[in-house]
Computed example of a mutant assay.
Amino acid sequence: MIKRKITEEIKTLAKEFPIVAIMGPRQSGKTTIAKHIFKKYKYVSLEDYDKRKIAMDDPRGFLKQYDKNVIIDEIQRVPELFSYLQTHIDEIKTNGSFVLTGSQNYLLMENITQSLAGRVGLATLFPLSLEELPTENKSNIYEVIFKGFYPRIFDQKIRPSSFYKTYLNTYLEKDIRLIKNISDYNLFLKFLKLLAGRSGQILNIQTIADDVGIANKTVESWLSILETSFIIYRLQPYHKNYNKRVVKSSKLFFYDVGLVCYLLGIKKPEELENYYQFGNLFENFIISDLMKYNYNYGELANFYFWKDGHNNEIDLLIESGNKIKVIEIKSAQTFREEFLKNMSKFSKLEKTKKVEQFLLYGGDENLQYKGTKIISWNSLKNLKKTKIFE
């Protein structure tokens, strides 16, 4: 098993809460990590019809059999169980008694917030980060982006095209059917492919609706489905008023760039070398990797981008306490001073917080230039040393 960096965070949550819920996209390794951390716990999956029927017909009897130190997988399949679980944990008063996992995050979170608020420590397990990848898969940026980061690709030596084809079919057939009754899967897939082509761009609901041939409210509904199932996320703009008009629409990103490559019809890593949107894919890869670190180590930093009315833009702002890390992301392999100009403009505008400047780029060398840390993408293999989160 590939060692996951979120392990210590999950162990800490188990000491603080009676229930730990491990969220995350399908196939990110939630069940695997739960069994690895809690080796002595009983395990029950409610995908099993017999177990599910017992839990539905006799929830008290089910919790008597699985009373503590148990991993319950796919618990969202029996939503009635949550209210009984609330009463049960209030009686036993022992932290770390239950570990819950599930692949329909929307349904899982809905039941947690309704019945178990304040009793659950939440951990979000994404696909692998760059520092978690097996060593032999970290050297070539085009291969890294093409393959993506789902554990099974590396554990089972599965071709990315085979994995993502199966992944999408399972996602459309299982998750989408449970979350929302979408009858036209082909139209939804067209929507998903169109979003892949706009990864790293400002989100324009009207344009997407026109291009797919659906209503604006349908676009919003489908985006919400993709967000709750950890396929996409929206990076929000930094709204602080610097007496300049700022862009207020969010930017669209995918949690996994390998899935984006598959949706775009990219067949092999070499195609990325001259791909016209490689800069967007590289930006998506960098921001997602930083976001994984934020979750894996229990950081509380907020992520934004910034763009004013004159098209001055910063790819990423990481705000934590009285600091703002200003990060530009460039896929170019050679550093140029012009990459820093928008960061300098932003730093002059920000008067209340300490600003630190970083450039993450496609080259191999780490440099220091006029107060800016210039960091190779390869350094994300040991992200702590970059001091981005200090």
Rank of each mutant, 00 (worst) to 15 (best):
N378E: 13
F278T: 06
N378R: 10
N342R: 04
K370R: 15
G121Y: 09
G118Q: 10
K292D: 06
I145H: 10
E47Y: 09
N284R: 07
L195G: 00
S376D: 01
L178G: 07
F230L: 06
F346Q: 03
K217C: 04
L226I: 12
M56E: 14
Y142L: 05
N342Q: 02
L189E: 04
Y43N: 01
P134T: 08
G102A: 01
L108A: 10
M56F: 14
E91T: 15
E8L: 11
N105R: 04
T372S: 15
Y275T: 13
K353T: 09
L259Y: 09
K193F: 00
S161Y: 02
N216I: 07
S129F: 03
R77S: 02
Q206P: 03
S162E: 07
Y150C: 05
V355M: 09
S162L: 10
Y304I: 05
K51R: 15
S249K: 14
L316K: 03
N366H: 04
A55D: 13
K373W: 04
N312K: 12
G29A: 07
K385Q: 13
D58M: 05
W377M: 08
V326K: 01
K93A: 09
K348S: 12
N284K: 09
I19S: 13
D315V: 10
P127A: 01
K64G: 11
T101M: 00
Y66I: 02
Y233W: 12
G279H: 03
L290W: 10
L133F: 05
L128G: 07
F254K: 11
E143W: 02
S224Y: 15
F253S: 08
K323C: 00
T12F: 11
F358V: 14
L168S: 01
G321Y: 03
V78F: 00
L133A: 11
N186F: 10
S376R: 04
K307D: 05
N241K: 08
K307H: 02
R198F: 09
Q333L: 07
I10G: 12
P160V: 08
L128A: 08
